[in-house]
Design a protein around this nucleic acid. Sequence first.
DNA 1: AGCCAGGCCCATT
DNA 2: AATGGGCATGGC
Length: 270
Amino acid sequence: MERIKVNRRNFDIAATLECGQVFRYRREGNGYFVCSLGRRAFLYYDGDDVAIESDDAEYFANYFDLAADYGAIEKTLSAFPELRSAVEYGKGIRILRQDLFEATMSFIVSANNNIARIKGIIERLCDRYGTDKGGYRAFPTPTELARATVDELKEIGLGYRAEYIYESCRDFARVEEELRHADAPRAHEILLTMKGVGPKVADCIVLFGLHLTRSYPVDTWIFKASSTPQLDTPAKVRDYYLDRYGEYAGFAQQYIFYEARSQAKKRENT
DNA sequence: AGCCAGGCCCATT
DNA sequence: AATGGGCATGGC
């Protein structure tokens, strides 16, 4: 077992994991378990630090984007008046460097779906098709997932997305290599050729699976938070903010999403 | 009970 | 290129 420690100043564990970018995490005891591909880490606060325990410290140092200076990113974003409150609210969020295949499948599942249910579906995908790592299961590889029939996928709860997963899983090899060398606009364009991937899901895959931050996923929350009489379609919101935030767009979007969704949940509980 | 969820597909225009 | 209806499932 290896342990990394980083100062907690720029790493809020709960915000990072619960901001909707990732689905394979579970709160337990004084921390969180996180799975990525076939690896698992346990995160908790230890004094002024975040401790990350795993059997592959190097992998998770990259996964949690520890080389990046999120203090500087937040400072840059805070120069935009409309972002100040969201950045303050979501301070310590980090954009994870997730696996491309896992992110692709996960965000196809996410379309017109809610996070609680997405988590359950992905967990069942892993339980059923991923290899046993002793105590947890890896996210299935494309080959493993290709063993699933459409009917089995429906049993897991995928509904009409079962066909999308079935096809895109088989289609992944066609696009993988080019995706890994593409810039954000090109990657977005390639992803749109996959079944079940539209503009929003493509942006999520670009951002979370390729870590290309010139990306601006517009879902219902973002649209509700930022549509105006001028910006009256998701495409217009996307274009406007991609231009405005440039390579910081993906970060900006994540803070806005987290704040908008958290506030809505809070209102429900009162 | 009914609305909604990190939207997309496809037919129509 | 743009628009709109239809859509499995289950959380809340």
